[in-house]
Design a binder for these strands. Structure first.
Lengths: 221, 221
DNA sequence: GACGATTTGGACAATAGTGTCTATTTTTAC
DNA sequence: GTAAAAATAGACACTATTGTCCAAATCGTC
């Protein structure tokens, strides 16, 4: 194997120069998501990226290399979106219901149900078992830590006396489950939920959540 | 095309005689679920079913026919399991919390998170867009009507004064979302949740659900 | 045991996809 | 403008897979 022999194989392309890298990654994400790993053909990706097939092979040695690169790319993007959403939640909430709703909407719109979220959910489920390493990485560093981060937020709300939450990690899982309750079906269809759906789903979720975990500060009205 | 010409093509095999049909369907479900539609090869299925490849082609003309048959088979099985679970819920609940928990456990164990449930969830997501007809069928007649059926049950509980539920369909979606909240991660790993996990998840879900929708008949204890 | 139905194994053509190679063209930077 | 880097197009070998055809073997039932 010798790892390429200088002459004609020196097509390793320095990672700095790109130009075609972005369209390739985008098209590949699209096609991998639509067709799955084995269903996606390099030719299809090349066409969708408006790029010669050879160019793809120049940048990424083989299909699997490309796939891994795509997952890394999408995961990174999803992560920054997630951090942004988490950071946007106020330290000292004033109108808890509204702020939780806004947070849920943000989470759903920009992390869970955008293009990247859809890609990750679908791919982790269908190709996860085949790439344990990749899968583990997603679980550790990926959008999956929504759980812990949310748990921390709820712990703060508990200590601030705004909510009464015995088990914060559990509450975090329940919160994410609830804000998706209304969107599951749309999601499975591969469609993107409308803004109204996202907003409605968030409101319903937060209302139930607050009935379950709210401190009964105000008298029943 | 002529639709086969009597002589050698008369291998249509009467639907009654089977013998090899069950192992074929089982193996095919397994392989389709593991590899996806395009990743699954007929040879692999034949081997796993301990059957000659030709036999598969005798029964199901082509790969797609086999796939459709598998989905129909699994859906039918999942449906009877679902009906059994729904029927098992008592008309006049006596200990609502316990009975809801038992119901949730039953639902999770025998419908949502068994082999069939896993298959349907995975396949609908990955191959759904490619088979709109099949997908529609699943949505209409498949396990997806958990929603409506559950809604009906909750409506009854509301009228019986056992719960206070303004929107029963919403509550149904939230209920199913909650009983899965703790299992999502395990599920994505392709693992089957343990009995303890299922039980715990159900308890937590029902407790939050009852805090949100319970009539406050008893004084806070 | 004989009959028809079912199953099997192997050979086969046709197709599609991966990855390589090479020569040529375009782009970028100096 | 020129030279290096990157992109392209096409031909190619190789492999895997689908689906067909056929002859032989096996099974179930009477």
């Amino acid at each position: 194997m010798k790892s390429r022999n200088a002459a004609s194989q020196a097509k390793t392309i320095r990672p700095a120069q790109c130009l075609k890298r972005v369209p390739i990654l985008d098209a590949a994400a699209e096609v991998f998501c639509r067709e799955g790993f084995s269903g996606a053909s390099i030719d299809e990706i090349a066409e969708e990226a408006c790029v010669s097939r050879q160019t793809i092979y120049n940048h990424y040695r083989e299909k699997e290399t490309l796939f891994v690169a795509v997952v890394a790319d999408v995961t990174a993007r999803a992560n920054t979106a997630l951090f942004a959403a988490l950071a946007a939640f106020p330290d000292k909430p004033e109108n808890l219901r509204e702020e939780l709703i806004a947070f849920a909407v943000d989470l759903n719109r920009n992390c869970l149900y955008n293009q990247d979220g859809k890609f990750l959910r679908k791919l982790v489920q269908s190709e996860g078992p085949r790439y344990p390493h990749l899968f583990e990485a997603w679980r550790e560093h990926g959008p999956c830590k929504i759980g812990t981060a949310l748990g921390a937020i709820f712990a703060r709300l508990h200590h601030q006396g705004l909510l009464h939450i015995p088990d914060c990690d559990l509450a975090a899982r329940q919160f994410t489950a609830l804000i998706n309750a209304d969107l599951q079906m749309t999601t499975l269809f591969g469609e993107t939920p409308t803004e109204a759906q996202i907003r409605g789903s968030a409101e319903q979720a937060v209302d139930l959540f607050l009935r379950g975990y709210g401190v009964l500060a105000e008298p029943v009205r």
